[in-house]
Design a protein around this nucleic acid. Structure first.
Lengths: 182, 182
DNA sequence: TATTAGTGATTGATCACTAACTAAATAATA
DNA sequence: TATTATTTAGTTAGTGATCAATCACTAATA
């Protein structure tokens, strides 16, 4: 029943287990980030994984679901990143910023994917995007609440705004656009 | 030499002058905003204008240039909107916000177009986008400078961040995401 | 007569997605 | 243990739809 497991022969003689679904998502993030949802082709994703193009449709119903799965993966990483966040009120924002900057360095393509998702006029993708943003917002509000902020929504809103500007600066290749603070 | 001028017969017997290029751009903004760059078709734009699809290519070299022309038009409106901005330091931000909110109400599709442009992986479109954002930023910095702000870049950066969050809230249909201030 | 404004028909390329198949691993059975 | 059946993991080949872009043309105007 485990559709995800399989084996490949590596250069040596050992056999290493591999999860095709994960591999495909990994490649999909890169290809989608590089070319955008509509320009990216399932053939490009398949080539990057080293499988045939039709095989993608054995593991994902269609291109839309592949994209959504990749997008959800990206949101899960953000949530995981902030899940452990905890600091006194006067340090919380700085810590949050630091965590996010690290994430942007290690997984820029997942950020770019999300920026692209904003503009995709596809109902299912939009819903997934709405849900993701809402979850991140809720999580951050809980963190700012826990730190004792009186108006966590205001703090979080500012944090989200600056985060978005960061994302856009990254996506457009405009480092000078990154938020400036004193 | 005036490629833009022509006439159409309206329902009455009079003849009204018309600028096809402008008409096409007007429709293009709507169609692109509704379907996104790649899903929007030149046929949809043509239908909205009431001309044949090939005629678009008499006035625009290709789809990319049509989109860029529409995008530039959107940026020009923003620049025009803020061009007259002038207020004492303690009112400037509020005035700027009011102007932008008005713009978002009167021309939401131009805002959505810009949000979409962020995610389009096309070199020419990206360059146009970079130039547009830079121009808006420069203009706002001059306004905040004129009002006597000590660190206009910081103020403008915050303004841009909140503006972007506004744009995203509009594009995703998430009014609850709009910036919160106290 | 030349230019402007416009159309109908077509095409070449691209791509998501399907169908029909195979090879290998694993489990069941004699 | 050898043999057969079944599932898993994957492939090759192809199709139907979509669309930007071109070409060759016409009708009206100046």
């Amino acid at each position: 029943m485990n559709k995800q497991s399989g084996t490949i022969r590596s250069k040596g003689e050992e056999t290493v287990p591999v999860n095709r679904r994960e591999q495909i998502l990994e490649s999909a993030v890169v290809v989608f980030a590089e070319h955008g949802y509509y320009r990216a082709t399932t053939a490009q994703v398949a080539e990057k994984v080293g499988i045939s193009q039709p095989y993608i449709f054995k593991l994902f119903k269609n291109k839309e679901e592949l994209f959504i799965a990749a997008l959800e993966r990206a949101f899960e990483r953000i949530l995981r990143t902030f899940s452990g966040l905890q600091a006194p009120a006067d340090q919380l924002l700085a810590e949050a910023i630091q965590l996010y900057e690290q994430l942007m360095e290690t997984h820029p393509n997942e950020i770019i994917l999300q920026v692209q998702a904003i503009g995709i006029r596809d109902e299912a993708i939009r819903q997934s995007m709405q849900a993701g943003i809402l979850e991140v917002t809720r999580l951050m509000e809980s963190k700012f609440s826990a730190a004792g902020f009186a108006h966590p929504e205001v703090e979080v809103s500012t944090f989200m705004a600056n985060g978005m500007l960061c994302n856009i600066a990254l996506t457009l290749g405009m480092p000078e656009l990154k938020p400036k603070h004193l």
